[in-house]
């Protein structure tokens, strides 16, 4: 059992310290950097909170979409899309489109959750 507070708690506390205590004391030319620090901590916090399950689920679906060695699945999908093999009217078009939406949405949940509305 690791010592508490855990990473999530520490990151959230550090982010609050940057925004509430450090930022107001900084000259304007350093404020942008402090905001970036807070943004980076927020991002790391969301990544920690999200865990690994969603990535595993996406990877499992990807395995069913394309045939390639595990480390080259994404590369294979990208190549097949470029070749037009998942254009509208092809058998896997809808399935690939749905996978891509989830792939983008789940990454945006961490990188830019506000963009998802």
């Amino acid at each position: 059992m690791l010592e508490k507070p855990d990473a999530q708690n520490l990151l959230a506390t550090a982010r609050a310290a940057v925004l509430e205590e450090i930022l107001p004391a900084l000259p304007p030319d350093k404020a942008i950097l402090a905001r970036m620090v807070a943004a980076a901590i927020g991002l790391a916090l969301r990544e920690t909170t999200a865990g690994q399950d969603w990535q595993d689920a996406l990877q499992a679906r990807l395995r069913r979409l394309v045939a390639a060695p595990e480390s080259r699945l994404l590369e294979r999908l990208a190549a097949e899309i470029r070749e037009g093999r998942h254009d509208p009217g092809t058998p896997r078009h809808a399935e690939v489109a749905a996978w891509l939406r989830d792939h983008a949405r789940l990454r945006a949940t961490i990188s830019a959750p506000r963009a998802l509305g």
Binding site: A97, H103, R107
Partner: peptide, 11 residues
């Protein structure tokens, strides 16, 4: 980290 948001828009 802007890339996922841009990709969301691209789709």
């Amino acid at each position: 980290h802007m890339v996922p948001e841009l990709e969301w828009d691209v789709l």
